[in-house]
């Protein structure tokens, strides 16, 4: 709890200590953080390694862009429409992909992801083809705070990511969320207990898609464009890395993971041409020496320090 509040305060005062480039990087980190957090619902809580999460991110972004191109330039209309589109797509895809499990699930989600990528690439009149849809302006929220100001946009993203975090944390404290976690731990046990595990996985898949769509909405408003590249499997792969490196099943970890990957990618590439080599080695070191991702590692350090002051019986930070 204390850790969380500290983190939140740090995030709130952060823009005052950052230059405009640092701020723009942080906005990207939070947007991708939300995207990775939504994937954590599947990887960390449901035990489903999905390889088409970028599809829902991209669909959310495309809906905003397409609406804008057709003259529907209203944030409060575009946001729910985009999230609804992602959710709707997931309700359809979920029916098919959840028949498979393990590596088969991974590959059938990949297949669907690439089919939708191809669709965005080919359907030029609607999606702009591989050139994408550029020129999407920042949203007008209807009150006198300009989203063209980077700081304001940062807070908008921060509000969304905090709300999403609280909602999801609450979800996994409810019986429904507990049951979903149960499926990850042992699907056969949950079945024996009379749960419809298929339905639980289906719900998780749909919920995760909705939050990914939300991240896509923020993404397209921030960057002002969307192209098929954002639907490609490389994007889904990157989200998986963010989740795993940050720590699965923690919601916060994936945001940290997004931060680490994006900041490294941008800083390293400015200093050395050999940055993929460095990132690759970091992944390897991470797997061998830092179990449970960065969030787990920080948590352990924190607990060690915490226990120095508190009685050993105190509740574990969540």
């Amino acid at each position: 709890m204390f850790l969380g509040v500290t983190l939140l305060i740090a995030l709130i005062i952060l823009p005052f200590g950052l230059g405009s480039y640092g701020l723009s990087l942080m906005i990207s980190v939070l947007i991708f953080g939300l995207f990775a957090m939504s994937l954590d619902i599947l990887i960390g809580y449901t035990g489903l390694v999905s390889f088409n999460h970028a599809t829902f991110f991209g669909v959310g972004a495309y809906v905003v862009a397409i609406l804008f191109y057709r003259g529907w330039d209203n944030f409060w209309l575009a946001l729910p429409a985009a999230v609804a589109a992602s959710v709707l797509l997931a309700t359809v895809l979920g029916l098919v992909v959840l028949r498979s499990s393990g590596p088969y699930f991974l590959m059938i989600t990949l297949a669907f992801g690439q089919m939708i990528f191809a669709l965005a690439w080919k359907w030029r009149t609607f999606t702009g083809g591989d050139d994408g849809l550029p020129g999407i302006p920042r949203p007008d929220l209807g009150f006198p705070v300009s989203m063209w100001n980077e700081q304001n946009f940062y807070y908008l993203v921060l509000v969304f990511i905090c709300l999403s975090f609280l909602l999801l944390r609450q979800l996994f404290r409810l019986p429904l969320g507990r049951a979903i976690i149960g499926v990850k731990e042992s699907e056969s046990r949950m079945q024996a207990l009379g749960y419809n595990t298929w339905l639980l996985k289906y719900l998780a898949y749909v919920i995760a898609a909705g939050f990914a769509g939300l991240a896509g909405v923020l993404y397209v408003y921030y960057n002002g464009f969307i192209s098929p590249q954002e639907l490609n499997w490389t994007m889904s792969g990157m989200a998986i890395l963010m989740v795993v490196i940050g720590g699965t099943g923690t919601l916060v970890g994936p945001v940290l993971g997004a931060g680490i990957i994006l900041i490294l990618q941008n800083l390293l590439s400015a200093y050395t041409e050999r940055w993929p080599l460095v990132i690759g080695m970091l992944f390897v070191i991470c797997v061998i020496h830092v179990k449970d991702g960065i969030a787990g590692y920080v948590m352990k350090l924190w607990e060690k320090g915490w226990k120095g002051y508190e009685s050993p019986g105190s509740e574990k930070p969540n």
Binding site: I43, V49, L241, V244, R274, L277, G280, M281
Partner: peptide, 21 residues
């Protein structure tokens, strides 16, 4: 499995960059 993904992906990065090098 997830660590395998991360580890082998890391190696893919390393090999790719060595080839580029």
């Amino acid at each position: 499995e997830l660590d395998q993904v991360l580890l082998t992906f890391g190696f893919a990065y390393i090999f790719m960059d060595i080839v580029r090098w």
